[in-house]
Design a protein around this nucleic acid. Sequence first.
DNA 1: AAATGATTTGTTATCGTTAACAATGATACC
DNA 2: GGTATCATTGTTAACGATAACAAATCATTT
Lengths: 315, 315
Amino acid sequence: MKKKKVTIKDVAKLSGTSPMTVSRVINNHPNVSEETKKRVLNAIEKLGYRPDADARAIRTGKTNRIGIIVSDIRNPFYSEMVGHIEDVANEKKMFITFSDTSRDVDTEKRVFEEMIHMGVDALIIAPEGFEIEHLSRYADRTFILSFGVHLPDLPIAEVWIDEEAGARQAGEYLKSRGVKKVELLMGNPRKFTTLARISGFMKGFGRIERLRHFRVEYGETYRYVKEVEELPEAFFCYNDLMAAGVIKALKEKGITPGKDVLVMGYDDAYIADILELTTVKIPIRKMVEIAFEMIEKNKKEKIRVEPQLMVRKTA
Amino acid sequence: MKKKKVTIKDVAKLSGTSPMTVSRVINNHPNVSEETKKRVLNAIEKLGYRPDADARAIRTGKTNRIGIIVSDIRNPFYSEMVGHIEDVANEKKMFITFSDTSRDVDTEKRVFEEMIHMGVDALIIAPEGFEIEHLSRYADRTFILSFGVHLPDLPIAEVWIDEEAGARQAGEYLKSRGVKKVELLMGNPRKFTTLARISGFMKGFGRIERLRHFRVEYGETYRYVKEVEELPEAFFCYNDLMAAGVIKALKEKGITPGKDVLVMGYDDAYIADILELTTVKIPIRKMVEIAFEMIEKNKKEKIRVEPQLMVRKTA
DNA sequence: AAATGATTTGTTATCGTTAACAATGATACC
DNA sequence: GGTATCATTGTTAACGATAACAAATCATTT
């Protein structure tokens, strides 16, 4: 049924050389005569040979694979992130081994361990609930990079988002618009990110009227706002998806976002553009570039990036 | 710097057995005495041993990897698809090797070949521009499954979407609403999918007023509708993203989608819900389940699924 | 022409695991 | 007791590639 594999030996035989010579050809080693090189390449072409990545990995220790772990690929922030990483990986002809944990901490833990053990040249994680000790146990096995979250005590690379600064801008902006009563619609209160956004916002805005935590899903805030009786002057949401839920609920109540009630999101996913949502932009593309730079140079630094206010129509 | 790898030999030494016995333990072979099993497991625990996936792959031919190739992970249809596949893969403890071709045909060709050669147990593709011969050359090397697109002449597995039937429903619906003049805002005219949706729609609706092709991006239709002078009574869009662009443009023109002009999308991505978009739902979750069923049973069939009309507010 | 050095090629061993077979020890049966 | 039977364990070789070394070839110098 399945065609048998063409190996380096087949190529060697057909081209009348040794496996080693073939290996040298496919790896562009300098000391191969033009003539044999040609013969080998012919044979490769004729047989449709391609080196076996796994065999290489086992011998050289280099896998040419980058692992990515995110908590929910359906969230535009993460699709955006993965999309950009893919762009770069394609350029460099690397493969991506991808995992989505569905925000489940146990799954997260498991796939993290498995990725380390299956062998990746670098592992990019957008940590949701990683426990510190757990992570640090493996920090010396692979190049691990935290994408977004700042974990000061861990000896791993980071491109971290200064969430405090970002949320603070949002707070200051809403304050400057004369808002007095805000309600925050946040995510998981045990996540660093959530905490940072809350505290940042408060630094910029001052006292908060109300604070609620939801699962980071569009339907959650929709249902809440739909049912709530007393509306604030403004909502600041954990991300754009949740803001989308708010907007929809408001509209159904006959309330115009941006006029009667202000709504702000976070991330600047593409729905923000579609909905004219005022939000805080995270520079994903730039972050990915920095990440690859660090991976390539094996620099285990912690680089900070700052989000930026995007004023549109809803606030 | 990097910690050296713990291998099966280390475990054997520590537990006073042979590598083969250890192998048997980790693979749950029956004939291992309880006693040695315990000793081995202890040693594994103590050393933090995990089998090397690459070594296994090379020896057994099974990689435990599933390859996915999509054209744009930022498109909600594909994030949804990948998300569901991940859910199942997680259950089965398989890894996913993922590739995004950015709709580039050459990249698509390249990663396809590379995936085949790097070794995956199955390869799920959502083909954009695959050329037939190219695909069939590899059809006997790996289990290849086309997700969505119907390629009748190719000897590969499929869970294909009956786009004609889906688009036809849309056409019939719009006709039943008394619409006379429609405009179709479609994608790449060389894609099977595009063609099927056009012809299906015409079967349901009849004569079409106008037909345009765009890159499958939100901004494209937005700019177009923004500038166009004469509006039809209804738009039927290639997907929800493009419909989102239309809606935004209409609103900016002071036109209410669903009242003055009807707008329909396709896919039923989550923005459809957010925007109250009338659309055609593709049953992704179900498709993924069928796909895995086929992969597991090694059944090279072509299963058809039918989309379903979702009436909301914009049409 | 012999010696030297540089270039090109081949050999052997190994990466971590498992398949196939061999060996050991225990148990059962006549 | 001796042999057949079974469960358990170990040995060897191999998967496909490459690193490290050795050998062969060629060109260059004296």
